[in-house]
């Protein structure tokens, strides 16, 4: 079991409020990603759940039990660190076994569990090596092995893939997601990379400046962002924002449209502009368009379009995919 509930959790370092009143309900077995720009408090929130920091106020419940004041070791969670934090003086076997040894399991049980975890992660040939003799990806696996072998109530991941190269990152992303589904253990995963968040999560928590901006499934966040911040943060390239007045909707402070929802229209149809840069990726074409008063717009068109800098074009937004925000940046639902 691994149901985690945050009730009014606050954290401040001196006068600085890092987390302001976080409320969250994480279901057993789900994969939840905390995402946000650096300094938003996502890592602090994870460390509060881990017990590596004390909360300033509020409650953290794990399976209904308040764990505030309970030391990290007694919370039944395991953590994968950004730096992997492997014990450099122990072999892979020693690293994976350490938690079990601390728990006082008999030798034979430890061996059996370590072997099983190593087999799951393809680490069996490396069990007797030291961390420094492993590649980045292998170290990453050891860190994960150390986390799964203890059969915790939940895994905590703190930006675990950020030290890997791009190709390996994509591969590990899938492996971690697959492993989590297979073990059906709750996972909380911190990242600043919204692509990682979108691809791995059952549910995403978007954090900004110590506030939870929105909590929902990836597609919910994409289709129905609750505010300007989430709208701008989720999706790549970034959503275009134009002032409502200029776009002919004076009742709306800001109008948002995603680059993939801007279509190239016929002459005289939609918003006029001049292409300033065209990026041809083959599968897509990204157009950066100077649209005068509307500002700089980004359009993403599927397939190859033969535009170049200086071309005049017309962009028409998909009316069903427009996002409207009031002057406080909150979405206007109609």
């Amino acid at each position: 079991m691994g149901q985690i509930t945050l009730q009014g959790v606050r954290k401040s370092f001196g006068p600085v409020n890092i987390i302001k009143d976080a409320n969250l309900d994480i279901e057993n077995g789900s994969f939840v990603v905390f995402v946000g720009p650096s300094g938003c408090g996502k890592t602090t929130l994870l460390r509060l759940i881990a017990g590596l920091e004390d909360v300033t106020g509020g409650q953290i419940l794990i399976d209904g039990r308040n764990v505030v004041g309970v030391p990290p070791a007694k919370r039944g969670l395991s953590m994968v660190f950004q730096s992997y934090a492997l014990y450099p003086h122990m072999s892979v076997r020693g690293n994976i076994a350490f938690g079990l040894k601390m728990a006082g399991l008999p030798r034979s049980d430890i061996d059996r569990k370590v072997e099983a975890a190593a087999a799951t992660l393809n680490l069996t040939p490396y069990l007797d090596r030291k961390p420094r003799e492993l590649s980045g990806g292998q170290r990453q696996r050891v860190a994960i092995g150390r986390a799964i072998v203890r059969e915790p109530k939940a895994f905590l991941f703190d930006e675990p893939l950020s030290n890997l190269d791009a190709a390996l990152r994509v591969q590990m992303r899938m492996e971690v997601a697959k492993l989590q589904k297979q073990l059906a253990t709750t996972a909380i995963y911190v990242t600043h990379d919204q692509v990682e968040a979108m691809t791995m999560a059952d549910k995403i928590v978007v954090l900004n400046a110590g506030n939870i901006e929105q909590y929902g499934s990836p597609l919910e966040l994409y289709e129905r962002p609750a505010n300007l911040f989430v709208a701008g943060f989720i999706g790549s390239p970034k959503m275009n924002f134009v002032p409502g007045e200029v776009a002919g909707e004076p009742s709306v402070a800001t109008l948002g449209v995603r680059p993939e929802h801007l279509k190239i229209g016929k002459e005289g149809e939609g918003w006029p502009g001049t292409v300033s840069v065209a990026e041809h990726l083959g599968s897509d074409t990204f157009l950066y368009v100077d649209a005068g008063k509307l500002g700089l717009l980004t359009a993403r068109c599927i397939g190859e379009f033969n535009f170049k800098a200086g071309d005049r074009i017309w962009l028409s937004p998909d009316p069903a995919r427009l996002h409207r925000f009031d002057k406080d940046g909150v979405v206007i639902r109609t």
């Binding site: 370092f13 017990g51 590596l52 920091e53 004390d54 030391p71």
Partner: peptide, 8 residues
């Protein structure tokens, strides 16, 4: 690592 226990 700023839990109260370690501070004390």
């Amino acid at each position: 690592m700023a839990t109260q226990q370690t501070q004390v």
